[in-house]
Simulated scan of single mutants.
Amino acid sequence: MPLLDISIIPVGTDSTSFSSEVINAVRKVKGKDLHYDVTPTSTIIEGDLEQLWQVAQDIHQEAISSGPNRIITNIRIDHRKDKKTDMNHQIDTVENALD
């Protein structure tokens, strides 16, 4: 299943904090009932490709409409076709190799 790694960076705000943007992004993801994981620097979302494009657009639009005059949205998509895998399997593979 494809993975989307997304981060939002508001530019030109009075605060160095952007937790409110992360909270708004996660609300968008939860509203679409997608599996996700919040990391310290980005949010990783699992879903079909069309869902991921749509949620990335929704997150970006929410961030720009919430106040800042400029938003930088970084996205990265991991789309594997040669075998079925998911976020948990990829994490388990690494964790098991460390044991």
Results as ranks from 00 to 15, higher is better:
26 V>E: 02
27 R>G: 06
27 R>F: 12
28 K>F: 14
28 K>P: 05
30 K>L: 10
30 K>S: 04
30 K>M: 06
30 K>Y: 10
30 K>A: 04
31 G>M: 14
31 G>C: 11
32 K>N: 09
32 K>W: 04
33 D>L: 09
33 D>I: 12
34 L>D: 00
34 L>K: 01
34 L>R: 02
35 H>Y: 13
35 H>W: 11
36 Y>P: 01
37 D>H: 12
37 D>I: 14
37 D>W: 14
39 T>C: 10
40 P>Y: 08
40 P>R: 13
41 T>M: 13
42 S>Q: 06
43 T>L: 03
44 I>V: 10
44 I>E: 02
44 I>G: 01
45 I>D: 00
49 L>S: 01
49 L>R: 00
50 E>Y: 13
51 Q>L: 10
52 L>P: 01
52 L>F: 08
52 L>A: 03
52 L>Y: 11
52 L>G: 05
53 W>D: 03
53 W>N: 12
53 W>M: 13
53 W>R: 10
53 W>K: 13
54 Q>A: 13
54 Q>I: 13
54 Q>K: 11
54 Q>Y: 12
54 Q>F: 12
55 V>D: 00
56 A>P: 11
57 Q>F: 12
57 Q>T: 15
57 Q>S: 09
57 Q>C: 11
58 D>I: 15
58 D>Q: 12
59 I>Y: 08
59 I>M: 06
59 I>T: 08
59 I>E: 06
60 H>E: 05
63 A>G: 03
63 A>R: 04
63 A>I: 15
64 I>P: 15
64 I>R: 13
65 S>Q: 05
65 S>N: 03
66 S>I: 11
66 S>T: 05
67 G>T: 01
68 P>V: 10
68 P>C: 10
69 N>C: 04
70 R>A: 15
71 I>A: 07
72 I>P: 07
72 I>N: 09
73 T>G: 06
73 T>Y: 02
73 T>H: 02
73 T>M: 04
73 T>Q: 01
74 N>Q: 10
74 N>G: 06
74 N>C: 11
75 I>K: 07
75 I>E: 00
75 I>Y: 03
76 R>S: 09
76 R>Q: 12
77 I>D: 02
77 I>K: 00
78 D>R: 14
78 D>K: 14
78 D>M: 12
79 H>S: 14
81 K>H: 07
83 K>W: 05
83 K>M: 03
84 K>I: 06
84 K>Q: 07
85 T>D: 00
85 T>P: 00
86 D>T: 02
87 M>Y: 14
88 N>E: 07
88 N>D: 02
88 N>T: 10
88 N>A: 11
89 H>L: 13
89 H>K: 09
89 H>F: 09
90 Q>Y: 12
92 D>W: 07
93 T>C: 08
94 V>G: 06
94 V>T: 03
94 V>E: 07
94 V>N: 03
94 V>Q: 05
95 E>A: 14
95 E>K: 08
